[in-house]
Simulated assay, not measured.
Amino acid sequence: MARRIPPMNPLRVFEVVARTQNLTLAAQELHVSQSAVSRQIAVIEGYLGVELFRRERHGVTLTRAGQAYAEEVVPAFDAIANATARLLRSTSQGALRVRTYTTFAAKWLIPRLPDFQAQYPSIEVRIDNAIPDVDFDRDPADVAIQYGDGRWPRVSAELLFHDEIEPVCTPAYLRAHRAPRGKLEPLLRHRLLVSHYRRTDWDDWLAFSGLSEIVQGTERMSFGSSVLTWQAALDGLGIAIGQTAMLKAEFDDGRLVRPFARPLTRDKGHYLVRPTVQRESRKVAMFRDWLLETVAREKADALEP
């Protein structure tokens, strides 16, 4: 049997009048006129078929039936209000929870976080590292940064930058393994360093560059993450595929070089991901704006001669 629940707007008006015992105060709390309050009371009394208030010259008072009803309805609205407050506090207060990959966190986000903290010292940032795509209903995250084509269900995705890849190695490795007169193809005949989660990067770049045949029989050494793969390149173990945006510091200080200078830009990229339905808290808005401004500034700086 279906439960009978009165129309919610008249019920809400009854709760406020019963709690305040005053039509004027109830109208002020509800931001409506006193006559509108009276009409809603008449609606719920008509629905229930019970007189809930006595109309007197100096206002209204609860009938015995109205008092009994109010003793259960008012606490129910209190419970709803408290539950709503707790829910909103959990999403708008506390640390900003950012979910992303270890590589993005270590090589892009964390080096730039001091700038965010300088601008917004009151916002604590907590970074959670995970590989699977975010599920905001399951995962404790306010925002996520993830790799893909930007088409994920039930989320809003904003592109930060496309994935750009090309081989990288140390200057010493380049000097030791390139052929006389600067020919670079011999670099590909020694050892290719491969990231487990980006296993196709080498083959994609080689096909793009028309160099696939050169690596037939070349040794490949695999690592559990891109961070470890690039560390192996820094230690001179071989030549790796670099993600351009992640290795800015290494390029700037000369620890890694891009000998072929032939980047492959993919359709996929890194996206800022938020729930489609989200009460936009200040901390999320500040982080989003800072992130997009940082990306835009670095793109502009890269275009300068």
Score class of each variant (00 low, 15 high):
residue 5 I to M: 15
residue 9 N to T: 14
residue 9 N to V: 15
residue 21 Q to S: 15
residue 23 L to I: 02
residue 23 L to T: 03
residue 29 E to I: 06
residue 30 L to A: 05
residue 33 S to V: 12
residue 36 A to Y: 14
residue 37 V to I: 05
residue 41 I to A: 00
residue 46 G to H: 13
residue 48 L to Y: 11
residue 49 G to T: 01
residue 51 E to Y: 11
residue 51 E to S: 14
residue 52 L to D: 03
residue 53 F to E: 03
residue 55 R to W: 11
residue 58 H to I: 08
residue 60 V to D: 04
residue 60 V to Y: 04
residue 64 R to T: 11
residue 66 G to K: 02
residue 70 A to P: 12
residue 73 V to K: 03
residue 73 V to E: 13
residue 79 A to F: 13
residue 81 A to E: 15
residue 81 A to P: 08
residue 82 N to F: 12
residue 84 T to W: 15
residue 85 A to D: 07
residue 86 R to W: 05
residue 91 T to H: 04
residue 94 G to Y: 07
residue 96 L to M: 02
residue 98 V to Y: 00
residue 98 V to K: 08
residue 99 R to W: 08
residue 103 T to S: 15
residue 105 A to D: 14
residue 106 A to L: 01
residue 106 A to D: 13
residue 110 I to F: 06
residue 116 F to N: 00
residue 121 P to I: 06
residue 121 P to E: 14
residue 122 S to F: 07
residue 122 S to A: 09
residue 124 E to D: 12
residue 125 V to W: 02
residue 130 A to C: 06
residue 132 P to N: 06
residue 136 F to A: 11
residue 137 D to A: 14
residue 138 R to V: 06
residue 139 D to S: 02
residue 141 A to T: 10
residue 142 D to V: 01
residue 147 Y to K: 12
residue 149 D to Y: 11
residue 150 G to Y: 11
residue 150 G to Q: 07
residue 151 R to M: 13
residue 152 W to H: 12
residue 159 L to H: 01
residue 160 L to M: 07
residue 162 H to E: 10
residue 162 H to K: 04
residue 168 V to H: 01
residue 168 V to Y: 00
residue 171 P to Q: 05
residue 171 P to A: 03
residue 171 P to M: 06
residue 173 Y to V: 00
residue 174 L to Q: 14
residue 174 L to A: 13
residue 175 R to S: 14
residue 179 A to D: 09
residue 182 G to T: 04
residue 182 G to L: 04
residue 182 G to D: 08
residue 183 K to F: 15
residue 189 R to F: 04
residue 190 H to V: 10
residue 202 W to K: 08
residue 202 W to C: 05
residue 203 D to V: 00
residue 205 W to N: 00
residue 206 L to R: 09
residue 206 L to H: 07
residue 207 A to P: 02
residue 208 F to K: 02
residue 213 E to N: 15
residue 213 E to W: 12
residue 214 I to V: 14
residue 216 Q to Y: 13
residue 218 T to M: 00
residue 219 E to G: 08
residue 220 R to Q: 11
residue 222 S to I: 08
residue 228 L to Y: 05
residue 233 A to S: 05
residue 234 L to M: 01
residue 235 D to S: 03
residue 236 G to A: 07
residue 237 L to Q: 14
residue 238 G to H: 08
residue 238 G to T: 09
residue 239 I to A: 00
residue 249 A to L: 06
residue 252 D to S: 03
residue 254 G to D: 02
residue 257 V to D: 05
residue 258 R to P: 03
residue 259 P to F: 12
residue 259 P to W: 15
residue 260 F to T: 03
residue 262 R to Y: 15
residue 263 P to L: 03
residue 266 R to Y: 10
residue 267 D to H: 07
residue 272 L to C: 03
residue 274 R to N: 02
residue 278 Q to L: 14
residue 279 R to I: 11
residue 279 R to K: 04
residue 283 K to A: 04
residue 284 V to A: 07
residue 292 L to I: 01
residue 292 L to W: 05
residue 292 L to E: 03
residue 294 T to A: 04
residue 295 V to C: 01
residue 298 E to R: 07
